[in-house]
Design a protein around this nucleic acid. Structure first.
Lengths: 236, 236, 236, 236
DNA sequence: AATGAATGAGCGTTCATTCAT
DNA sequence: AATGAATGAACGCTCATTCAT
């Protein structure tokens, strides 16, 4: 009974993963040393190699798992919704909330792509393309239906995702505005941008605009802890 | 050998600066070695120290000079325009064009802020705040005038700048869409986002929408060369 | 290769310390390179950092440990002796013997104080002051008792210690004169200098003058090995 | 008339020499860089090579010239004095005064011998042997005459010179004790040490003991300036 | 008489990684 | 499952020195 089921190994592996996220977030992949990481979890640096093949693979695992999680959850959120406008709102709200609760993972996935070796980067870029494809398809469908005024869905996709993702550069939990308020503001910009000036009649964004969007805790127990270390800031 | 014939301090300094931008863009500041940089300009690594105090200062010089250039040119572009809508279009177009022609500098300034030491980062962050302040003030004035529907100018500023800046993550000269077309698309999203759904009557963004914005080469001969090295891509 | 078979941390640490003493003695702290030191003990230079924090700390450790050893052994030797003259002879003999058997340490401690960083130097200077204080107190007491003619005990302390310490500049084991003979000669100069011309009646230094002083193996097995490298000499 | 007679070159050479003494005194030969030295005299470091062959020769020139000066002045001071006791007092006083006024040169000559290359060191050591020979001969003659009780003149020479030279480790102009007082104290120790306990009758060191010794400014305008930079101290 | 651009070697130090134990 | 001793390469940086101008 001295040994917890699931073994110490699994727990250590998880601790390493979390410490890795924290340190890469804080210092950047290149600047984080394995000695630091080992110290963070109470090991010698050589012992880390029981848990990953090398430093590069640690990064890859973190980023790939994050991207798969992001993609899977986005697809789950959109499942069953067919109206393009509702899908856009859902996507936007999902993306925002995810980026506000998993800032470190998201930040890493965006900043450290260039630190990935070619093959790993290819995998991650492919996952991201699939994720972007979700939004692109929404915009394309909405344009076809006449509800969006979007000439270039691919460009609009990049633009919208950049805008939404940008929230992780400055958002900090406990700020003046709640997550709900921020979702409303950003989603408003997105929807207005997509529907265009003639859309007034359709009242695309008014009374109780977030009714289809508000829900989801989704992230279970893993919400990014408010006390998480911050990177040297970008919007300090 | 003591001196390469015809060597010239000012020319070398400029070559180092340019090579620095290129290599930091391509590999990241941490990952770029001074030996690489020296090789790029045909020097021994120790000789670089005639041209900068240390590696950190090279980065700082690049980023600070870029930010001052960006800020100065934005202010120059906005000078004399008073109408908030026109100012928003001008700002947006300026930002986009600048980011399409100086991709490497812009990318560095956004990605390597965390590699700056505290004091240097403070200087750069302050410059960026001033730059963001330009847009925020435009949004604030437009909201006061009733032409924009923007509840939180600060948040909208971050959102819009993130969106516009995102262009440097994927834009490559010579692509299917011209700079002018991209400016039109992005500016449309921005203006529609800011004016909101009720703005239809004002027709804020239609026929010939960029007449006041299209022109300017501005950057004279220094346009970022199309052959510039690309970073390991983020949108590859 | 990961590990030299039979390698042993404690043994390596000791080897590094000894090689450090030898090389600093021979070339001086500034002139000794860590690559030299590493080669001397059969390591790569980076591996040394398992054993000290940095080059400066290696020097500090050597010098501080030496000073503490010197001080401790001097106090032990003087313990129980109360007569100022006997104490002076004891101190003088102790100092000489110590300096003849630990020439390298002593030389380093005297020559490399200026290579210590401020904080480290302060620690070492304080230890040396305590050591000098032993002699100063002896002179002061002897002057009070009327056995010494010493107007300025502090100055006399410096003078005597300089004289005695100087032996490590030229003494080499196996020379014409034995350690005992040298102790007698130097101690004679010291005692005569301190007691002054009128002291004849007291016969402070004649027949069997070292009877209270001769003893001491003290340093057991650690006698400085005669084969030790010599510094580029100062009295070559 | 724009050009001062003696030319700028000679003046620069002298400035370099003085700055060299100052910086070697302060930081040590190894630790002093030629860039520092050049900055001190307002030149580029490459320009120094008009004034010396290389760094090592600068040190050698300083040390050799100092030794020749020391030797020459000692011989001049002793000229015409025949009585061993008077010669001992003269030598002692000369050595002390010289060491109190030329601390930097003396310090360098003592500390940096090991930084000299073999050939240069040989020259300097030979000069020092001649200097030590002066004292040794005095002691030998005095012993023969029965006025000194010195069994081993060579050892006594080393001992006495070490003692006297030690003054440059702690003496600072403007201290509580004047140069004259210090000369008296130290010379007392030396003379008492040499004459031994039975010498009381000869009253070797009493009433106006320095009458033959006090004089000489000798060092003309070049007295070490009290404001001279100090080395990181050895007796701080 | 001096500059200023450059060299090439070497410095102290850190790093990811290996592997016998 | 983990340690701890070690590697070998590379890093940022400083140095004495050279020499065309």
């Amino acid at each position: 009974m001295a040994r917890t089921i699931g073994s110490n190994g699994a727990r250590t592996a998880e601790a390493i993963r979390q410490a890795g996220v924290k340190l890469i977030y804080k210092h950047g992949y290149e600047a984080m040393s394995l000695r630091q990481l080992a110290a963070e979890v109470g090991l010698q640096s050589g012992s880390l190699y029981k848990y990953f093949e090398n430093k590069q693979n640690l990064l890859f695992d973190i980023v790939r798992d994050h991207m798969e999680d992001l993609l899977g959850k986005a697809e789950a959120d959109l499942a069953g919704i067919t109206d393009p406008l509702a899908r856009l709102k859902t996507f936007s709200a999902f993306h925002l909330r995810y980026h506000m609760t998993r800032m470190a993972h998201v930040f890493i996935a965006n900043m450290e792509i260039r630190s990935l070796e070619d093959e790993h980067r290819a995998v991650v870029v492919a996952l991201r393309r699939r994720y972007e494809g979700l939004l692109e398809e929404i915009l394309r469908q909405g344009a076809k239906d006449g509800v969006f005024q979007v000439r270039e869905p691919k460009v609009a996709t990049y633009a919208i995702i950049s805008m939404l993702t940008g929230i992780c550069m400055w958002y900090r939990p406990g700020g003046r505005l709640s997550q709900d308020e921020l979702v409303e503001i950003y989603t408003g910009l997105v929807v207005n941008g997509a529907t265009g000036p003639g859309a007034a009649a359709a009242k695309p964004f008014e009374a109780n605009p977030l009714e289809a969007v508000t829900a989801q805790p989704r992230d279970g127990g893993t919400r990014a802890k408010p006390r998480a270390a911050r990177p040297k800031a970008v919007r300090a």
